[in-house]
Amino acid sequence: MSQQIPISVNVNGTLYERAVEPRLLLSDFLRHELELTGTHVGCEHGVCGACTVLLDGDAVRSCLLFAVQVDGHGLVTVEGLAPDASSDRLHPLQEAFREAHGLQCGFCTPGFLMTLVAFLEENPHPSEREIREVISGHLCRCTGYQSIVEATKIAARRSA
């Protein structure tokens, strides 16, 4: 097999050390090496946004990065959002999504959540226009987006 590069990545607070092929996509690394399958892959060309994760706090598309590029960095995936993995408690944004019916099939949802978590951090009181613009980088075929906008507003209101 081809060359293996050692990397060390902190994901959701856990340090992982692995040797990977240089061409291994970050999305595949997360999903298949670390078995963090909450990050979904919808297009593999950076349009749909389903694979979005936080890289040192910024929302990035894990299908457009190689695993070797995140060596030494910190990632948060959708599995890392809720405060406590063992309880049923959700992150306020996740809670708002449930309340507003912000998801149907739920496949695109992790990507929306990650982008919106980073966005609300930066802009805690966004206008509807701003919310729509930031999520226009994501595709959802089920909801028609309205309930995602509503969920974001609810989460923003609560954090105020």
């Binding site: 999903r31 298949h32 078995e35 963090l36 399958t37 909450g38 990050t39 979904h40 892959v41 995936t77 959708v78 599995e79 959002l81 809720a82 049923d88 959700l90 996740q94 999504f97 449930r98 309340e99 019916h101 998801l103 739920g106 496949f107 949802t109 992790p110 959540l113």
Partner: peptide, 21 residues
């Protein structure tokens, strides 16, 4: 009523076919 299935989906724990290892 809010949905029974949402918590799993929102936490990234729902099983989709590509999640089967």
């Amino acid at each position: 009523f809010t949905r029974n299935e949402d918590a799993r989906l929102l936490r990234g724990l729902a099983l989709f076919v590509d999640d089967v290892h």
